[in-house]
Each structure stands twice: as structure tokens, then as C-alpha cells.
Design a protein around this nucleic acid. Structure first.
Lengths: 385, 385
DNA sequence: AACTAAAATGTAACCGATTACATTGTTTTT
DNA sequence: AAAAACAATGTAATCGGTTACATTTTAGTT
């Protein structure tokens, strides 16, 4: 059956509007029963009927099949150069956008990477995210970022959400209180790659990217010891997560090496916030025998602690030397500037994203890699004299 | 035609594995031609054939239609309680997950909100994001976050990406250098809601959520003036974006009110980083007539500036008083603590997300709202004596 | 029992891109 | 000139939920 169709418009506002109308007309003809003889449609109604340009529209316009259009748009070498050009031009003209859902549905993959972090409130995390984003954007991947707010429960909800959204891969930094990896099981079962960074689990089922926290903790403490300090407080968090446990281990190791007995009364457990640092300062001030050094497991907390110590009349570093961790910009703001452990956030993010994407592309298999350790360095500033 | 099928397994590892096998068998029967009489399949091959549980599987298992399953899973009241329970139970048992792409494809909406921010490096932004995330999560929306890195170009690429990913709505804080809103046109055309927050455009095509920057700049400057300071430097950024222009306007207004002539030689343009603050301090120190006050357009920069001023031997606030902006935690770390303008990041994020989602739900129409102003307050601390 | 209204469920088209396989047209080989 | 090889394009099934409309079942009424 062959139709001849006259489309008469009473008002055409713009080229683009005309396009819409024509597409709508084509669509209507395709879908209407042959019974209707007359038809009156207001533009607004029409535009509601169909508003997106699809490969079907392009195919109809050029009188080729959707398959050809689909192939042309993906630059498949099997399509002739001439056809490709026609398709590209028309797609350009009508501002065609591929519908990602149709593609994802069909391809069973999403081009999306999930990122789960404890909190977005540190310079370090911002740097990591920036690194991840840079690599992901470049490779055409989307990012879904969510925060666990240091809660194991929220974390596992986020993991589930990521799973439901069928992310192609997951980059995770664990919360303080994560005590099992059950929620990640699903990913393992479906062979969806998961890479942990910074706050990594002790289990070795997944790939980890981190620094040597034992060593860094050791160096921080050793630095204090080498400055002659012997009564050293460690301010950290009570966490099931390995990072802080390892920093503590390094602290203990250094003490042992210098023959200083480990005194658990000198270990202050808080939440590593600036407020917690202030509380630690109070704790230190109240100790019967005044300590002469503090190793704080993060800079924000260390800054709070330094301010607290000064408020209690203690001089830093003369009375008490302080070492932080992270090389957060705050370490250069607080007076005196903090001696701290520097480690590369941006690089860590880049590396994590790149590893994941290479794995997804089949360029490398991360399952072969168990752990990647990045360098971390002690940066000596005023707070240790 | 009625088939009776015997499925014989040589090895069943677990209940779940059995489920997979049965589903595969059902699927095979549905899809195989009647010609094949014999069939041998290895489990690994089978699991590749079909690995996700779909509503079709559940429907087949319960001997109801997919429509019923679909409706039951969405808790449609039209489905009987009994059937619903059966469906829920089986879905639970087999760990069914709805395929978002299929749903999105069909529903023509994504349940995703795009967020574009200049940078993720300030406490304020982290707070905003946290606020957005809280509301979005609660309402079952996903978030795609991306950074423009203060570049107008990156920003418009991000906008395009968001558009291609068919976000349901967009929350944007503009970069320093955005000079036109062309890239957002697409959204306007398709009636996809866009809400700007904090760094909002001057145009009133879209809804804006922000504080009164003119007023805040005015108050900050007036505070310095009321402390007797008359030669006041303003440290800001050369930006096309209105926020900083308005803070400057407030600064100029306050000066005018106190009869102090506006001297453009006292306006220092940098990038508002801590380093830029240090540079501003150097600039101030080098000025022929020493200023006695500084109003810096953000706290991070102000902190850098304070440190720089101290390094140049100037006493804060005695020689020179400093006011920042944002009430970033750093304002309470730097010595002396910064007088600053506090404004609610978390609330701003919440409000932006909630407005957007209400609009999407049809509960409210944001197009009716032009601008929402949030309160901002001067917080007086040591840096102004 | 007959009839009607309401409740529950089923059927099938649809969203838009992908791709195995089939078909057609064109060039090269024997 | 016939056969084979290759290039270009087309056909139609597929991904998995959603929903308008159709059909069946149940409950309620006279």
C-alpha cells in the first residue's frame, strides 16, 4: 500500500519546529489505522506524542534501515563512507542523542562507575574524586558518587543501590565501622570488579590501592622519638577498619624499637574531627604526667588538637610536638604548621579509576593484582620543631 | 501444545544454583524450536545464557502474567494481596532486582538528578552535596555529580553529558568564568528543570537559590568600618559570575555609606585560593599606605592571607583586621580565628534538591519561583578584634 | 438464578538501540 | 561467462519493564 500524504501547517515557528512537525507526521502515518480520514492535531499535542529524535526517524528520513543508521553512528567500518556522512549530517542537524537506556538495556552494561566514600569532607577525598573523575570522563564513563557517612549500614545500602543501578564497577573507601564485606558478595558473584582504595579491607578477595599505613605510622612516631620525645600520645578512632589499626601498629612498632613501653592510657579514641582533637587536647592536659608528643591519625583532628593544646597554655612544639596525617591544606594553615604524612590523593584516584577501566576494557585483569601500594612521605614542619 | 519436561541435573551445588538451572531450563524451553530432541548443556554455558532474574522468570514460576508481577512489585493496589505476597516472596527468594534501564526506557525518565559544581574542595560544597544527597536518596533519586573545575568549557561539556544521560533535573553552581547560559538552553527547551544554587546566573530564566551577596558583602565591610577601619582592601576573583560581583557591590555600598571613596587600587584580584591569599598579603604589605582592614571573599583565601600578613610582621587584628566569607572550618583553625559570613550549605543543598524533586513529582512548580534567598549572618571572631 | 458492578488478571504493543543472520549488489577470479 | 569473494544494507529478534485495553473472576444485588 502506498500513501501520498499532504501535510499542511498553519504556523511554523522555526526550522527545528518544522522538523518536529514532520517527524510527528511520519510517526502518525506509521501508527494510525487506515480508518481515520481526517485528523486535527494541535502542535502542543503533537509535540507530546513524540519529542525525541531516534534512529528510526533518521532511517525513515534517509530511506535506509535502522541497522545501517545504528552502525553508521557507531562508526562501524562496514558502512560505506557516503552513507555514514549522510547519517552523521542528519543526526547533527536534528540534534540526535543516543538513548543510553536503550543501549544499556541491549548491551547489558552501563558505562557507569560507582564510587562510595565515607565522607566528602576532606581535601584528600576531594582530590581522590577529582582524580577518578578525570580518568573516568576521559574514558567516557559516568560516575555515581555516594557517601556512607561513616556508617556501615548506609554503606551497605549504597552498595545495594549501586548494584541495582548495574554499575560496571565499584570504587570504594570503607567507613570506620564496616566489619564485613557481605554486601560486596553480589559483585563478586557477578564478576563485577570492585576496587578498594585508601580505607581498604583486610580480606584479600578484592584489589586494594593504598599506602603502607604501618610504615607511615611508624615513621611519624619515629620522627617524634628521634626528636627526643618519649611520652607520646596517639589520637585515633575506634574503628573496625584497617587503616587506623595499621597506623596504630606502626606507632607501637616505633615505640618498641626505641624501647618505650606501649601505654594504652596514652591512646585517645575519638572520631578524628577537629572537635575530637580539642577533646584530645583536654585529655592530654589532664594527664598526670604531661606527654611531650602526639601522633594524630589525621590533620583535621591534629589541627583541632594543636589549637586546644595552645588554649591550655602548652607550647607547640616546645612543650609538646605534634604530627598529623594526610598533608591536608589545613596543616599549613594552623600555627604552627603541622608535620604530617603526605600521600597522593589525586594519583590514588587516577590509579583506581584507570585500573578499573582497563579491567573493564579487557586491557588488564585486576583480579591478578592484590594490592597496590603508593608512596607516602613524612613532611617535617614547625609542629615538631 | 503442552510439554512435559524432565530436567535432570548431574550436580547441584546450592539452592541458588539450582534456581539458576531451573530458570535456564524454563527459558530454554520457551526459546527452543520444537525440532531439537536432545540437548546437552554445561552449567557454565547455561549460566551465560541467562543470569539475571527477570519478572518473566517470576511470572513463569508463579504461573501469572508479567503484567501482574510488574504491578505487584510496584505495590499497585489493583493486585490482590495474596498475589502480591507470592510475588514478593519469590522476588525476595531469588534476589530479583528491577532493571532500571528497561524501566527508564519505557518510562522515559531516569530518576537521576545531575549536579554540576565548580569544585569539590570546600567545606561549603561538601555540605551542599551532603544536603542534596540526603534528600535525593530519601526520594529514591540517584545523583550524578561532576566538577567544572572553574572552567566554562568543562562546565558546558558536563551539561551536555548530563543532557545525554537524560537526567530528570539539574542542580548547578556556576564556574567563575561562565559567561552565558547557552548550554542550558536544551534543558529549557525540553522543560527539564534546572535550579541554580549559590553561584547563580543573573538571568532569571531559571530558578535560583542563593544568599543576598550584596547585603553580606555590605555587612562584612560595614563591620570593618564600624571598627574604625577606613582603608579596606577587598580580595576577590575576577569572575563573570555574579556572586563575587555582588559581594564587591556590597563592599562598595558600605564604603559609600561611610563616605569612604572607592579606590580600585585596593581591590586585589586573584583566584581565592590560600596561595592567592598569601599573594594578597604580599600585595597589602607592599602598598605605600598600609591598609587597616581586609575583606576577603572566601575563608580559605582569607586564611592564607592572615598567615601571609603575620609572616610580613603585621598583627591581626591590631594592625589590620580581616573578614572572610563562608564560615569554613578553617576560619576556626587559623590564628586568630576569622570573622566571617556564615551561610547554610547543608540547608541550601536540601532546599535545592527538595524543590527539584517536588517539581518532578508535580507537587510544586519551580518555574513559578524565581529566586529563593537564604539567610546569612556575620559571625564575629578574633580577626576583627 | 440471573444480572451487574467491581476486582483481578491477562494480552500485547511499546520504549530505542544492537546485532546475528539473511539478502542484495559489486568486484574479482578462473 | 560463471563462480566465488566481498561489500553494503536490510530483517527481525532481543534486552526487561510498563501500561492501555481486553478478558476473566468474584462479590453483590434483585
Amino acid at each position: 500500500m502506498i500513501f501520498t500524504i499532504f501535510v499542511v501547517f498553519s504556523e511554523i515557528k522555526s526550522k527545528e519546529f518544522e522538523t518536529t512537525l514532520i517527524f510527528n507526521a511520519i510517526w502518525l502515518v506509521k501508527h494510525l489505522s487506515t480508518k481515520s480520514l481526517s485528523l486535527q492535531i494541535r502542535p502542543c499535542v503533537m509535540s507530546r506524542i513524540k519529542k525525541e529524535v531516534t534512529i528510526y526517524d533518521i532511517a525513515a528520513q534517509l530511506d535506509v534501515s535502522v541497522a545501517t543508521v545504528s552502525r553508521a553512528l557507531r562508526d562501524d567500518p562496514v558502512v560505506s563512507v557516503k552513507t555514514k556522512k549522510k547519517v552523521f549530517d542528519l543526526a547533527e542537524k536534528y540534534g540526535y542523542q543516543t538513548n543510553q537506556f536503550a543501549r544499556n538495556l541491549r548491551k547489558q552494561q552501563t558505562n557507569t562507575i560507582g564510587v562510595i566514600i565515607p565522607r566528602l569532607n576532606s581535601y584528600f577525598m576531594a582530590a581522590v574524586i577529582a582524580g577518578i573523575e578525570q580518568v573516568a570522563n576521559q574514558a567516557g564513563y559516568n560516575l555515581i558518587i555516594s557517601q556512607s557517612s561513616e556508617s556501615a549500614e548506609r554503606e551497605s545500602i549504597n552498595v545495594r543501590t549501586m548494584f541495582n543501578n548495574r554499575v560496571d564497577g565499584l570504587l570504594v573507601s570503607l567507613s570506620y565501622h564496616t566489619n564485613n564485606l557481605d554486601s560486596f558478595e553480589k559483585f563478586a558473584k557477578k564478576n563485577i570488579p570492585v576496587i578498594f582504595f585508601d580505607r581498604t579491607p583486610e580480606s584479600n578477595t578484592f584489589t586494594n590501592i593504598r599506602i603502607n599505613n604501618v610504615q607511615s605510622g611508624y615513621e611519624a612516631t619515629k620522627h617524634l622519638l628521634s626528636k627526643g620525645r618519649r611520652r607520646i600520645v596517639h589520637v585515633t578512632v575506634s574503628s573496625t577498619e584497617s587503616v587506623y589499626r595499621e597506623r596504630f601498629r606502626g606507632y607501637a612498632q616505633a615505640l618498641a624499637e626505641f624501647g618505650v613501653p606501649l601505654d594504652m592510657n596514652l591512646v585517645y579514641l575519638g572520631d578524628l574531627s577537629p572537635e575530637s582533637g580539642a577533646a584530645a587536647a583536654k585529655f592530654i592536659h589532664a594527664l598526670p604526667q604531661r606527654p611531650d608528643g602526639v601522633f594524630v591519625a589525621n590533620d583535621n583532628c591534629a589541627a583541632g588538637c594543636v589549637i586546644g593544646l595552645k588554649a591550655h597554655g602548652l607550647r607547640v612544639p616546645d612543650d609538646i610536638a605534634v604530627v598529623g596525617f594526610n598533608d591536608d591544606p589545613v596543616s599549613r594553615i594552623v600555627d604552627p604548621n603541622l608535620t604530617t604524612i603526605h600521600y597522593p590523593g589525586h594519583e590514588m584516584g587516577e590509579l583506581a579509576a584507570r585500573s578499573l577501566i582497563n579491567h573493564l576494557n579487557g586491557a588488564a585483569d585486576i583480579m591478578l593484582t592484590q594490592t597496590i601500594l603508593l608512596r607516602s612521605d613524612l613532611v617535617v614542619r614547625e609542629s615538631t620543631g
